[in-house]
Computed example of a mutant assay.
Amino acid sequence: MVRAGLTTDRVVAAAADLADTVGFDHITVAALARGFGVKDASLYGHVKSLADLRTRVAIRSGLDLGDRIADALAGRSGREALIAFAHAYRDFALAHPGRYAATQLELAPSAYDEHPALRRNLTCTYALLRGYGLAEPALTDAGRLLRSTFHGFVTLELAGGFRHERDVAATWTSALDALHIALTNWPKGHDS
């Protein structure tokens, strides 16, 4: 029997909050149940398993990040779009480290069929890069550059990996300036 007051949405929202507190890899059904003051079994009316719970957190987080990036990009192009995209990405990761980690979970293709908005990050990335005049295969190559730069930066930042006295925000700004220059001057003729 499903406990009154608990819904799948409430369970997943609480799991996302817990992920931000203890880390995505450390969320458990037992910890979540304790937070609700119920037995573990009460949650299985809302999620099938721990893997199902983590997938649901990943989907919720991916949709949230995609919405934030899309909102940031609205009406912008070029350097302004790059900076807005980058800040939305970094701000989300720093404010919600567990949810950000969840966005890195590999989802089954059926998740994208069920939640087409999960593709928003990719479509926003391509829209940003088309603003720089890029087409395939440069779109894929530049998209990989952006993702690896943004992900690498925030992952190191979250882990306390920037110990130099230089302000991290200043380094972020410099990195975005360098990306803008790279995108503006993307090399031609690397089709293989």
Rank of each mutant, 00 (worst) to 15 (best):
L122S: 10
D177Q: 15
N121P: 13
G152T: 00
F153G: 02
A175C: 13
P137I: 05
P137D: 03
I181V: 14
R120Y: 00
A102S: 05
Y112I: 02
R147M: 12
A170D: 15
A142Y: 11
L129V: 07
H164Q: 13
G152Y: 00
D113C: 00
A169C: 02
L128E: 11
A182T: 15
D167A: 12
T103L: 04
L145C: 10
L139D: 03
G131W: 06
D113A: 12
A117G: 12
S174W: 11
L105R: 15
T123W: 10
A182P: 06
L105A: 09
G133C: 08
A138P: 02
Q104M: 11
A182C: 08
W172S: 13
E157M: 04
A178C: 10
T171M: 14
P116W: 03
T149H: 04
G131Y: 09
P116H: 05
L118G: 05
E157R: 12
W186D: 02
A169V: 09
A102L: 04
Y126T: 14
E114A: 15
A170Q: 12
P137Y: 02
P109N: 03
L146N: 05
S174I: 09
A169T: 14
S174R: 13
T125E: 09
L156E: 01
L156T: 02
D167C: 07
S110M: 05
L134A: 07
H164K: 13
L105I: 06
N185R: 08
L139P: 11
R144P: 00
E106T: 08
L158M: 06
R166A: 12
A170L: 13
F162P: 04
E114N: 10
L156F: 08
N185W: 03
L176H: 07
N185K: 10
R163W: 03
N121R: 15
T155G: 03
G131R: 10
G160T: 05
T140D: 11
L105Y: 03
R147E: 10
L145F: 08
R130I: 07
V168D: 01
C124L: 06
A127H: 10
R120W: 00
A142H: 08
A108K: 08
T103N: 04
R119C: 01
D167Q: 11
W186V: 04
A182M: 13
D141Q: 15
F162M: 06
L176G: 06
P137E: 01
